[in-house]
C-alpha cells in the first residue's frame, strides 16, 4: 500500500471578477512509497501548495482522488496519521511554545498530561530546549519553522507533509532541518515535502516529482534520474608531450600545468586513459560530470 497516492487531481480557480477560470492543477498523479522522502519540486506558482491543500481538505478539487495509506486523505480519521507544516507558518504569537504544542496535541485528542511530556521531548528534538515558556512573538523566523516542525510531530504521524520547510531558513538551520527530515525517515516515517530549493532536495530525497504549471512533468527515483544523466567525463592529467596529444587529435585545455579534456563517450575514455599511461603521463583525476537536479529541473522547465 502506498503512503500517499494522488490520481488525476484537477483544480480550477475562478477569478472574482470576469469569472475567468484558471486551471491550477491539470492532472496530478503522485505516488509515494512508505518510508521514503518524496521531494515535490517546482517553481513558485506551479501548484505545489494547492496540491497539498487539496490533499488535506483545505480546498476542494474538481476531479481526481487523493489517498493516505489507501484511504481518503481528506477524512478526519486519516488526518490523524498526518503531521503538517504549512508554508511560512504563523502561529498564535500570544502563546508560548509549550502552549502551542499542547493546543496542537489537544486537537488530536491526546490527553493533556501526555501531550505536555511529548511537547518537552519535541522541543528538545528541534533544538528549542529551554524555550518552552517563551512567547512566540519573541521567536525568530528560524525558531518558528522549528516549532512548526515540532507541532507537525505532536501526534507521532506516519506521514509528515512539509510545505516549503526550507524557505527563509539560514544555512545552519537548513542543515539541521535536513538532518531532522532524515531522522524522521530513519524512524520509519514517510516525508513528503515541497520546495524550490534544489540543493537541499538533492541531498535528502529518495523520489522526486517535478511540477510545472499544474502538471507533473517528471517523477522518479532521484538515483535513476541522475545516474542516467552523466553528461561527460572530465579527465585531468599531466606530463604528456603536447605534440603527441595534437597528433592523436585529443582536444585539451591547459590549466595550472594540467591538461583537461572532456569526453562524452565512455569508450573513448578508456582509450585516453590507456594513451596517457602508455606515454608515461600521470592521471590527476577522472570525474564523471553528472546532471544535477538543477540541470534536470532547468532542462524540463525550458523544454
Amino acid at each position: 500500500m502506498k503512503a500517499i497516492e494522488i490520481m488525476g487531481l484537477k483544480k480550477t480557480f475562478t477569478s472574482n471578477f470576469m469569472l475567468k477560470k484558471y486551471n491550477v492543477l491539470k492532472d496530478i498523479n503522485i505516488s509515494v512509497e512508505k518510508g521514503e522522502i518524496y521531494g515535490f519540486l517546482g517553481p513558485n506558482g506551479a501548484g505545489k501548495t494547492t496540491t497539498i491543500k487539496c490533499m488535506l481538505g483545505l480546498i476542494s478539487f474538481d476531479s481526481g482522488e487523493s489517498f493516505i495509506c489507501g484511504k481518503n486523505s481528506r477524512s478526519l480519521e486519516e488526518r490523524k496519521k498526518i503531521g503538517f507544516l504549512p508554508e511560512h507558518p504563523y502561529f498564535y504569537d500570544y502563546l508560548t511554545a509549550k502552549e502551542l504544542l499542547c493546543f496542537s496535541g489537544m486537537l488530536f485528542s491526546i490527553p493533556v498530561k501526555k501531550v505536555k511530556n511529548k511537547a518537552k521531548d519535541l522541543l528538545k528534538l528541534v533544538g528549542l530546549e529551554g524555550k518552552e515558556d517563551l512567547k512566540l512573538k519573541k521567536f525568530s523566523k528560524g525558531m518558528i519553522q522549528r516549532l512548526g516542525f515540532a507541532q507537525a510531530l505532536i501526534n507521532d504521524p506516519e506521514i509528515v507533509i512539509l510545505d516549503e520547510p526550507f524557505s527563509g531558513v539560514d544555512p545552519i538551520g537548513r542543515k539541521e532541518l535536513r538532518d531532522l527530515i532524515i531522522s524522521l525517515k530513519n524512524s520509519g516515517k514517510t516525508v513528503f515535502f515541497s520546495s524550490h530549493i534544489l540543493q537541499d532536495m538533492e541531498m535528502i530525497v529518495d523520489t522526486v516529482g517535478i511540477i510545472l504549471e499544474g502538471e507533473i512533468i517528471k517523477q522518479g527515483k532521484l538515483s535513476d534520474l541522475i545516474s542516467h544523466s552523466v553528461q561527460y567525463y572530465e579527465v585531468v592529467f599531466k606530463d604528456v608531450d603536447e605534440s603527441l596529444l595534437k597528433s592523436n587529435n585529443i582536444g585539451f585545455k591547459l590549466k595550472d600545468n594540467n591538461y583537461i579534456t572532456k569526453l562524452k563517450d565512455f569508450e573513448k575514455l578508456n582509450y585516453i586513459i590507456e594513451f596517457i599511461i602508455m606515454n608515461h603521463g600521470k592521471i590527476v583525476s577522472v570525474i564523471p560530470i553528472k546532471m544535477s537536479l538543477e540541470d534536470i529541473f532547468l532542462k524540463e522547465i525550458k523544454g
Partner: peptide
C-alpha cells in the same frame, strides 16, 4: 488572514 486556521483544519478537526 494569518493562516493559523491551516494549523487547525489540517488536523482531525471538522
Amino acid at each position: 488572514e494569518k493562516k493559523t486556521i491551516y494549523n487547525i483544519l489540517s488536523k482531525p478537526v471538522s
